[in-house]
Simulated assay, not measured.
Amino acid sequence: MANDTITQELLAAAAAGDFERVRQLAQAGADLNVLIGGDTLLDRVTFDLAMEEPVPAFSADMLRLLIQLGADPNFAGDEGATALHSAMLKQNVELMRVLLEGGAEPNGMPGFSPDETLYDWAEFDYRYSTWDEPFEPLGSLMPPDAPTATDKANEDAWLLYLDRCAVKHGARRPDYLFLLREFGARTAEELGRNR
Rank of each mutant, 00 (worst) to 15 (best):
M1G: 08
A2I: 12
A15Y: 01
E20G: 06
V22E: 05
R23P: 02
R23A: 15
G29L: 08
N33P: 08
N33L: 12
V34F: 04
L35Y: 05
T40S: 03
T40I: 01
D48K: 14
A50I: 06
F58T: 03
D61H: 12
M62E: 14
L63E: 03
R64A: 14
R64G: 08
R64Q: 15
G80D: 03
A81G: 12
T82Y: 02
L84G: 02
Q91R: 10
L100I: 03
E101N: 11
G103P: 08
E105S: 09
G108P: 01
M109P: 00
M109F: 03
P110M: 11
T117V: 03
W121M: 15
F124I: 11
R127M: 14
R127P: 06
R127V: 03
S129K: 15
T130D: 02
T130R: 00
W131N: 00
D132E: 09
P134R: 06
L138D: 05
L138K: 06
L138V: 13
S140D: 13
S140M: 12
L141S: 01
P143D: 01
P143I: 11
P144K: 10
D151I: 03
E155D: 14
D156F: 12
A157T: 12
W158G: 08
L159K: 09
Y161M: 05
R164L: 04
C165V: 07
H169W: 14
G170N: 13
A171G: 13
R172P: 01
R172E: 05
R173H: 08
D175F: 02
L177F: 09
L177T: 01
R181I: 05
R186W: 00
T187A: 02
A188E: 02
E189W: 05
E189F: 08
R193C: 00
R195W: 09
